[in-house]
Design a protein around this nucleic acid. Sequence first.
DNA 1: CTTGACCCTCTAGTGACTAGAGCAATTAGG
DNA 2: CCTAATTGCTCTAGTCACTAGAGGGTCAAG
Lengths: 145, 145
Amino acid sequence: MLTIGKLGAATGVKVPTIRWYEEVGLLPRAGRSVGGQRLYDEAARRRLAFIRHARELGFGLDAIRDLLSLADRPDQSCAAADAIARAQLAEVEARLARLRALKGELERMVEQCACGTIRDCRVIETLGDHGLCKGEHGGIASPLA
Amino acid sequence: MLTIGKLGAATGVKVPTIRWYEEVGLLPRAGRSVGGQRLYDEAARRRLAFIRHARELGFGLDAIRDLLSLADRPDQSCAAADAIARAQLAEVEARLARLRALKGELERMVEQCACGTIRDCRVIETLGDHGLCKGEHGGIASPLA
DNA sequence: CTTGACCCTCTAGTGACTAGAGCAATTAGG
DNA sequence: CCTAATTGCTCTAGTCACTAGAGGGTCAAG
């Protein structure tokens, strides 16, 4: 049986994060010691490792919840899991495209800067006038890295 | 003189967002009509367009605040603005590298899925066992797209 | 038995907004 | 000139996935 700190160390997840996963239902309510401290078994450790890995791959907690409930039913079709992963891949590809455009625009901006005074600064000027941009760079960047 | 709605339409910024920019000090407190509604002039419009464009390029509000105060002093050196832009570029490049790694891992996962039952699903299996991953994909993805 | 490391709950804060309630002001049409 | 529709106002709360901190309780080693 692991205390929450050992579990965190074993999985690379911070202690408050583990408690928070419990609160939002990603982890089942942990059993407690006599004094009321959480205790975890190997199954909990595997479940948390799964969550952590999925987070590293950028899945949101809702998607992870779905993936976990799928993982608990080994006889069902894998199609749903596949769909979730494909959606995540599409999301990542979209963000990649956007970031590449951003990078190009920033590079252009920085390269043109002669580093004189603000008056002649291409960085400031470009920011002030969208028309100086070559390509579109769409709307405001969305969260979820 | 523009009302807040016209200003929003002219710059592509939503009305509550404009009010929020005022609240956090990116925009000066707007003058008001007799009835208390905000009114904006051309200078405000340019300032908001600057903010919007910088947001599109992924700058955070703190960086934008700095850029704006630089833009207001045309005689000063452009070095600080250049540094902010370079930092943003570095940030974008780091996120690009991370996203590329993520994309690779997701592609591998999805490609290996034979779409049978969950029991044999590579997606679920890979998520459960980080050892099946080829490369590192670092920590949890950070926000700020 | 004490010390220090760990654990508990609870609240609040992050970034950059977005949504909604409940009401006031403006504007276009008749 | 009146009315109805639109737009505006403030304020609160919610989003995502945590993180930080206060103020205490528990546990294992020495």
